[in-house]
Lab assay of single mutants.
Amino acid sequence: DYYKILGIPSGANEDEIKKAYRKMALKYHPDKNKEPNAEEKFKEIAEAYDVLSDPKKRGLYD
């Protein structure tokens, strides 16, 4: 669930989505986080943001 990945409610607005994305992206960026699964988690976060930040894609997802 993209909302769960970003840690936001399904009714989140654009600003909340952007803030959550930035926070999670910094936390899991492969250059900052050396955990083995950090890169995979970072890709999931980027995919979630891509879908939820685009009103058309978000509409299809919801």
Rank of each mutant, 00 (worst) to 15 (best):
D1E: 11
D1Y: 01
D1V: 05
D1G: 09
D1R: 01
D1P: 04
D1L: 01
D1K: 10
Y2D: 03
Y2T: 03
Y2S: 02
Y2G: 02
Y2Q: 05
Y2E: 04
Y2L: 09
Y3D: 01
Y3V: 00
Y3S: 02
Y3F: 06
Y3E: 03
Y3H: 01
Y3T: 01
K4M: 10
K4N: 08
K4A: 02
I5M: 08
I5R: 04
I5G: 02
I5V: 10
I5W: 05
L6N: 02
L6R: 00
L6C: 00
L6G: 00
L6F: 04
G7T: 03
G7C: 09
G7Y: 01
G7P: 00
G7M: 07
I8L: 12
I8Y: 00
I8C: 12
I8V: 11
I8K: 01
I8W: 00
P9G: 07
P9E: 05
P9W: 03
P9H: 11
P9F: 10
P9A: 08
P9Y: 07
S10L: 06
S10H: 06
S10W: 06
S10M: 13
S10C: 06
S10Q: 13
S10R: 09
G11D: 05
G11K: 06
G11Q: 03
G11M: 05
G11Y: 05
G11F: 04
G11P: 03
A12Q: 02
A12I: 01
A12W: 00
A12R: 01
A12K: 01
A12M: 01
A12V: 06
N13L: 04
N13Q: 06
N13E: 08
N13V: 07
N13F: 01
N13T: 09
N13S: 09
E14C: 05
E14T: 08
E14Q: 07
E14H: 10
E14W: 04
E14I: 13
E14D: 06
E14A: 08
E14S: 10
D15N: 02
D15L: 04
D15C: 06
D15K: 03
D15F: 05
D15R: 03
D15I: 04
D15P: 04
D15W: 04
E16M: 06
E16L: 07
E16T: 09
E16N: 06
I17P: 00
I17Y: 00
I17M: 06
K18S: 14
K18N: 07
K18R: 09
K18M: 13
K18C: 09
K19F: 12
K19W: 14
K19A: 14
K19Q: 14
K19Y: 11
K19E: 13
K19G: 12
A20E: 04
A20K: 03
A20T: 04
A20D: 01
A20V: 05
A20Q: 08
A20S: 08
A20C: 05
Y21M: 07
Y21C: 03
Y21D: 02
Y21I: 00
R22S: 14
R22M: 14
R22V: 15
R22C: 13
R22Q: 15
R22P: 03
R22D: 15
R22E: 15
K23M: 14
K23G: 15
K23T: 15
K23P: 02
K23N: 12
M24T: 06
M24E: 13
M24D: 01
M24K: 13
M24I: 09
A25L: 13
A25V: 15
A25H: 04
A25E: 14
A25S: 15
L26I: 15
L26C: 13
L26H: 14
L26P: 14
L26A: 13
L26K: 11
K27E: 15
K27C: 13
K27A: 15
Y28V: 05
Y28C: 07
Y28R: 06
Y28M: 10
Y28L: 14
Y28I: 06
Y28P: 01
Y28S: 04
H29C: 13
H29F: 08
H29L: 11
H29S: 14
H29T: 06
H29M: 12
H29N: 04
H29E: 13
P30S: 11
P30I: 11
P30G: 14
P30T: 14
P30N: 09
P30W: 06
D31H: 10
D31A: 14
D31E: 15
D31R: 13
D31V: 11
D31Q: 11
D31G: 12
D31S: 11
D31L: 11
K32R: 11
K32Q: 05
K32L: 02
K32V: 03
N33A: 14
N33W: 09
N33D: 15
N33E: 12
K34F: 02
K34G: 10
K34T: 12
K34N: 15
K34D: 06
E35H: 04
E35P: 14
E35G: 12
E35D: 08
E35R: 10
E35V: 10
E35Y: 04
P36S: 09
P36V: 14
P36N: 11
P36L: 11
P36D: 09
P36Q: 14
N37P: 09
N37I: 01
N37K: 12
N37W: 05
A38C: 14
A38P: 06
A38K: 13
A38Y: 13
E39D: 15
E39I: 09
E39C: 15
E39P: 15
E39W: 11
E40Y: 15
E40D: 10
E40T: 11
E40F: 13
E40N: 15
K41I: 09
K41V: 09
K41D: 13
K41Y: 13
K41Q: 08
K41F: 08
F42C: 08
F42Q: 14
F42E: 06
F42T: 10
K43F: 14
K43H: 15
K43E: 12
K43G: 14
K43Y: 07
K43R: 14
K43L: 13
K43T: 13
K43N: 07
K43S: 13
E44C: 15
E44D: 10
E44R: 09
E44Y: 15
E44T: 05
E44W: 08
E44L: 09
E44K: 08
E44V: 09
I45W: 00
I45K: 02
I45G: 03
I45S: 04
I45A: 11
I45C: 08
A46Q: 02
A46E: 05
A46F: 04
A46N: 13
A46R: 11
A46Y: 00
A46P: 00
A46K: 13
E47T: 05
E47K: 14
E47P: 00
E47L: 06
E47R: 10
A48H: 00
A48W: 00
A48M: 00
A48Q: 01
A48K: 03
A48D: 00
A48S: 05
A48C: 01
Y49N: 12
Y49W: 12
Y49M: 12
Y49E: 02
Y49D: 02
D50F: 03
D50K: 13
D50C: 08
V51N: 02
V51A: 04
V51E: 05
V51Q: 15
V51L: 09
V51S: 12
L52Y: 00
L52W: 00
L52R: 00
L52A: 02
L52V: 03
L52I: 06
L52G: 01
L52H: 01
S53H: 01
S53L: 15
P55I: 09
P55D: 08
P55Q: 08
P55S: 11
P55L: 09
P55K: 03
P55W: 05
P55R: 06
P55T: 05
K56D: 04
K56Y: 08
K56G: 10
K56S: 07
K56C: 04
K56M: 05
K57N: 11
K57G: 06
K57I: 03
K57T: 02
K57E: 06
K57M: 02
G59M: 06
G59R: 06
G59F: 01
G59A: 10
G59P: 08
G59V: 08
G59D: 05
G59T: 09
G59H: 05
L60A: 12
L60P: 12
L60C: 09
L60R: 12
L60E: 15
L60G: 12
L60F: 07
L60N: 12
L60K: 12
L60M: 08
L60Q: 15
Y61F: 11
Y61V: 14
Y61S: 15
Y61K: 08
Y61D: 07
Y61E: 14
Y61R: 09
Y61H: 05
D62S: 05
D62T: 09
D62F: 04
D62L: 06
D62W: 10
D62K: 06
